[in-house]
Design a protein around this nucleic acid. Structure first.
Lengths: 217, 217
DNA sequence: ATTATCTATAGATCTATAGATAATGC
DNA sequence: ATTATCTATAGATCTATAGATAATGC
């Protein structure tokens, strides 16, 4: 019988939290906040359910922690992409360029196919299509700030558009992204296999095209 | 004390079912399938919860019945609009025309603002962004057939596009529609009041514009 | 006689907490 | 001594059903 490696409290704490967050992320993605029990999560994390409460207080607290965990990273990737595009493009900034930058930075992580990250996106998709205030503590979105940057760049690229135009444009794009993240498999069936919900490369390409100039050209 | 009007069994049955469906529709829209109990629904319908089981067997059966109730109507409205557009346009059929017809017929009902119908759309939005197979008996969508008609017309209007292009185009449009139906209120906050989630006229106008030619022009 | 509706309840969860035990800190 | 983890359980649900009652059918 091997002696268990001695781990510092800091490590034990961190590893347990990560295991719980990983399990919660996967299960919330599959079944939604109310479709999963703390017992399910504990089991998947190989940890007693009471430990969730020790670390995250309530189930809603755990959900918020799941969302918070990767939000900073997503924001950083998007912000850097947008800022460096704006710097490079200068006065040549275009709607197509801004859209491409936003969409590509958004999907380049998904394309690598890390299962945890994909689950995260599915959770975010659910959050996006749930009435604001459905989960206490989740009124705004942690991505709002970078979205404002996106709209700012759009405004610069399309001075003729007014604010409502710009925000509605974002709304439509956001809907397309959200549905893609949900990976429901419906388009696969509908297209008789011509499209695959998990093919983020094709999704990004078509999204950029559609939101740059519609279907034609 | 007034004697209660004598109602036929057929009437009692129909009225109770409608009350239950109305209540379920509103509550499912607000909190999702797993966020609502049969007790909540019975209470809102002013009926004992056991009656739900008498009529709809299980809670999932009730959910399916909510979805089925208005699906035929939505399909009829959409199909008629698309067919009469195609007939009128003849060889002059265009992507912009097909999109306008699909979007307008989809939203003209929502614009009238019937609260029950709006709840219905919110339920459909949730269904659309939930993994297929999350609710037993709900693999395909009851709207698939008319969607195929939409894609057929698109194909006629844009012969240069291949099937994947067409279905991905529908996917993006569907995402925008779905997010709009969800009426989350997020765009209101994000745009600082410039856009309102409930303004289906503005949504339809901007959706048609974006999916016809992007943001510019 | 048949159908609609309610009463009562079984049996299975579910979230959260109090308090005990095991591991690390120092 | 402190922190992490588990045991045990309270108390509140939740879905579904069996069986009683109330209304309509004819």
């Amino acid at each position: 019988m091997t002696a268990r490696a001695r781990r510092t409290n800091r490590e034990r704490r961190g590893e347990s939290q990560e295991r719980i967050l990983d399990a919660a992320e996967a299960l919330f993605a599959r079944s939604g906040f109310n479709g999963v029990s703390t017992k399910d999560i504990g089991q998947a994390a190989d940890v007693d359910p009471s430990l969730l409460h020790y670390y995250f207080d309530t189930k809603a607290g755990l959900y918020l922690a799941v969302i918070a965990r990767r939000a900073g990273y997503v924001n950083t990737v998007r912000r850097q992409a947008l800022e460096s595009y704006a710097a490079d493009a200068g006065p040549g900034i275009s709607v197509a360029g801004v859209v491409r930058t936003y969409v590509e930075s958004t999907f380049e992580l998904a394309r690598q196919g890390d299962e945890g990250y994909l689950s995260y996106l599915t959770v975010i998709a659910q959050m996006n299509s749930t009435p604001a205030g459905g989960i206490p503590g989740l009124e705004g979105t942690p991505f709002d700030e970078v979205v404002q940057l996106f709209v700012d760049l759009l405004r610069r690229a399309s001075p003729a558009s007014n604010d409502a135009d710009l925000y509605w444009f974002y709304h439509m794009l956001s809907g397309a992204i959200t549905l893609s993240w949900a990976r429901t498999g419906r388009i696969d069936k509908l297209s008789n296999g011509q499209c695959r919900s998990t093919d983020f490369e094709a999704i990004a390409d078509h999204m950029i095209a559609v939101f740059s100039h519609g279907l034609d050209r």
